[in-house]
């Protein structure tokens, strides 16, 4: 809540030293990765704008290139400013929340597992249909998130129930098309 009062980055040098238990070495500067990403995106936007084929009829003095050029340059600028801020000790504040415990290091294995489950769902939704792939998505996500006691009993039942109910509600009540897949073809 101290947001409006917190000093802006220009004051970075004047901010009190950060708490001592922060990670050191390379990890402390992982935020430079954000900078690198902004730099890359900026370069991409600029490259796309410059190579743009402007033979297409340009109505008005500002063509389709102008805004991408501005955005691209701004991205490069912000990437540099962010890098300077990080090197001077500025750190983005990780977001808190109801279920978030920031005292533990990040559990990136779970995140990778979830992303994998999600990609599998994207690959399976067309061949298997929504009810089956959706159930797999829920079950796999719950497993990845640490649901272990009911892996083969309650979890799959909830997953199947949720998936089928969602399919029926969307398909019949709300008129939103979801693929039924071979399973629904049989039923």
């Amino acid at each position: 809540m101290s947001t409006p009062e917190t000093p802006p980055p220009a004051d970075a040098a004047a901010t009190p030293p950060p708490p001592a238990e922060r990670p050191t070495g390379l990890r402390a500067y992982s935020e430079l990765g954000v900078s690198a990403l902004l730099l890359a995106v900026g370069a991409l936007v600029l490259a796309d704008a410059v190579t743009m084929d402007t033979v297409a009829s340009v109505r008005g003095p500002v063509g389709p290139r102008t805004v991408p050029l501005v955005v691209g340059i701004a991205l490069l600028l912000v990437a540099v400013l962010l890098a300077v801020d990080v090197l001077r000790g500025g750190r983005g504040e990780a977001e808190g929340g109801e279920d978030i415990d920031l005292s533990e290091p990040g559990d990136w294995r779970t995140v990778a597992l979830l992303a994998g489950v999600f990609l599998a769902f994207a690959a399976l939704i067309d061949p298997l249909g929504f009810p089956l792939s959706g159930a797999l998505l829920f079950w796999g996500s719950a497993y990845a998130l640490g649901s272990r006691t009911h892996t083969l009993t309650r979890d799959p039942l909830i997953a199947a129930g949720l998936s089928v109910v969602t399919y029926v509600v969307f398909h019949t009540l709300l008129g939103v098309q979801l693929p039924g897949g071979p399973l629904m073809g049989v039923v």
Binding site: F121, F138, S141, L145, T166
Partner: peptide, 15 residues
């Protein structure tokens, strides 16, 4: 249970 909650969010986001 939190695993169900966040699995549910992913599920509905996908829908």
């Amino acid at each position: 249970p939190r695993p169900y909650l966040y699995a549910g969010i992913l599920f509905f986001a996908a829908v």
